[in-house]
């Protein structure tokens, strides 16, 4: 394969006080592929997505290269502008604010004086809510997020990630708090992203889900990258026994 990666991480380290959350992570992501990022609780999956999304900064010495360009002073606003959208594990919703304010949070549609184009935002949010099939007719774009159920909040976070054109979408355990039918929709949605040519990093606790949609597996164990390889003909059972090996021995 001679394709150049969409994004490349070189020597990413992250320490929180004494906790080494990530050590020497080197990772390349290509266009139009789905990477399932797996590993036990505390393995560093969320921290890695936060570094890619600019929410956390990596320790000194790390390099983030996007489309061949090394990125300096990487931050969340830049990441989004350059086409990286994230469904954070904690949802990153502002709960007292309306659904539409959350959908456009950080990327408000404004005129040249900075005033928000409210009607447009509401209209787009309505369309989005219809698209993701909000079954409850009670909610309007004006409803505050704190009135929504866990699954519905998830829907807001996910729809925010597809509203804007992006080349990489990261989903950190997006199906938690969702009903089974909703979970199936999310899996469908991920395959859709790929069909549109976008790259996806998918984190799930459910190894069958992680296996089902993946083109490639990346396994983390206590902050180290212990496996990175294509799915190929790996079956779900083989994948799960790989995960067991990692949990037991720290390697595949």
């Amino acid at each position: 394969m001679d394709k150049s990666p969409l994004i490349e991480l070189i020597g990413v380290e992250k320490t929180f006080g004494r906790v080494q959350a990530l050590s020497n992570i080197n990772l390349k992501l290509y266009e139009g592929e789905i990477v399932s990022l797996v590993g036990d609780n505390g393995a560093g999956k969320t921290t890695l997505t936060k570094i890619i999304s600019g929410t956390e900064s990596a320790d000194d010495g790390a390099k983030i290269i996007l489309r061949g360009q090394e990125q300096k002073n990487w931050n969340a606003a830049k990441a989004r502008k350059l086409g990286i959208e994230t469904v954070h594990q904690n949802r990153a919703l502002s709960e007292q604010q309306s659904i539409y304010a959350n959908v456009f949070m950080g990327r408000e549609l404004v005129n040249r004086f900075g005033f928000v184009k409210r009607k447009e935002q509401i209209k787009e949010t309505e369309a989005l809510m219809r698209k993701i099939g909000y079954t409850s007719k009670v909610w309007t774009p004006h409803s505050p997020v704190l009135k929504l159920s866990g699954g519905e909040r998830q829907g807001v976070a996910i729809s925010r990630a597809i509203l804007f054109d992006s080349s990489l979408v990261m989903l950190d355990e997006p199906t938690t708090a969702m009903a089974l039918s909703e979970q199936a929709e999310v899996m469908e949605f991920i395959l859709n992203l790929k069909a549109q040519g976008r790259s996806v990093i998918f984190i799930s606790h459910n190894p069958w889900d992680a296996h089902a949609v993946a083109d490639r597996f990346v396994i983390l164990d206590r902050g180290r990258l212990v496996f990175d390889g294509p799915k190929g003909n790996t079956t779900a059972d083989e994948f799960i026994s790989m995960l067991r090996d990692v949990a037991k021995k720290g390697s595949v």
Binding site: K50, S53, G54, T55, N75, A76, A77, K78, A79, R80, K81, T86, H88, N90, R91, A92, L93, S94, E95, Q96, Q97, A101, M105, G106, R107, R160
Partner: peptide
């Protein structure tokens, strides 16, 4: 509004 509601969410969204 976002700063006083959920600053972490705001930061994550840029």
């Amino acid at each position: 509004h976002i700063a006083g509601d959920n600053p972490e969410a705001g930061r994550a969204m840029g």
